[in-house]
């Protein structure tokens, strides 16, 4: 192994001794100085995760979070120098991390936090105007085949836990003691203007939006939502997307049915 490979290996593995070939001007032991690098690597990456997952941190407390993140950092260091997106697989890691198994909702809260970061940095896209949408009403028969392109920041998270309520309680909205963590909730995450919104929607509404994001035409998207809740009315979803400037293009069908 060359100098750099040895140095790199010892950064993440505390069981590795201080690499050989280092020296200090006093002739003393360089190990403690090497610690500066080791500490900075691990601590700065844990800090990056703490920035991305602040509610996850609050839920388990600083000591537990930093220890858990430390295990993750050593096993899964960033593969890219862009730290904004470091930790995309941290929620999965939490879900399979035995010491956190008692908190069934923790991984999904982390997923929600990651979706917020993703939304925050997502590409900008101009919404269509209400007039454009009103225009498609002129040809009613084309509506089921119409596809909506939505804002790149938008995503849906179906959770078996009360992710939105848990997250919101940490923003001073609602009381944590009132939240039943095992209550399933569906979250819609999107950026509206410069702000990231987290909105709780019904599971059927979430399914409809997810289908739209996947590129399904309106008719099929609504059908998918209706299979979850036969009383599903798309007016709420469409109104919400419009209100949040989340519809960015209308793509007419290629004329089949």
């Amino acid at each position: 192994m060359n100098t750099q490979a040895k140095f790199a290996a010892a950064l993440l593995d505390p069981a590795c001794p201080c690499p050989s070939g280092l020296k200090t001007w006093t002739g003393g032991d360089p190990a403690r100085r090497f610690q500066v690098y080791r500490n900075n690597v691990v601590a700065s990456l844990i800090d990056a995760l703490a920035d991305t997952f602040p509610v996850t941190l609050e839920l388990v407390g600083d000591a537990f979070f930093r220890a858990m993140a430390g295990v993750f950092v050593r096993g899964c260091p960033p593969r890219s120098p862009i730290l904004a997106f470091y930790g995309d697989d941290f929620p999965d890691f939490i879900g399979s991390f035995p010491p956190a198994a008692g908190l069934a909702y923790l991984a999904d809260v982390a997923r929600l936090e990651y979706l917020r970061v993703r939304a925050f940095h997502a590409a900008d896209s101009m919404p269509i105007g209400a007039a454009e949408l009103a225009g498609v009403l002129a040809d009613e028969s084309a509506l089921p085949g119409l596809r909506l392109r939505v804002h790149p920041s938008l995503s849906v998270l179906h959770s078996r836990s009360a992710v939105v309520s848990l997250w919101a309680a940490h923003q001073g909205i609602g009381s944590l003691a009132q939240v039943v963590p095992s209550e399933p909730e569906t979250a819609l995450v999107l950026r509206h203007g410069l702000e990231v919104d987290v909105i709780e929607v019904s599971p059927a509404a979430g399914e409809c939006i997810a289908a739209i994001v996947e590129g399904l035409p309106l008719g099929a998207a609504v059908a998918r939502a209706s299979s979850i809740d036969e009383a599903f009315d798309p007016a709420g979803v469409l109104g919400l997307l419009l209100q949040k400037s989340a519809i960015t293009a209308l793509i007419p069908s290629r004329r089949e049915s």
Partner: peptide
């Protein structure tokens, strides 16, 4: 300085001989 090695990014400015 270097900050990446073997595909991993270390988020630190590491020294070279």
């Amino acid at each position: 300085a270097w900050s990446s090695h073997g595909g991993a990014f270390f988020n630190d400015l590491l020294p070279a001989p």
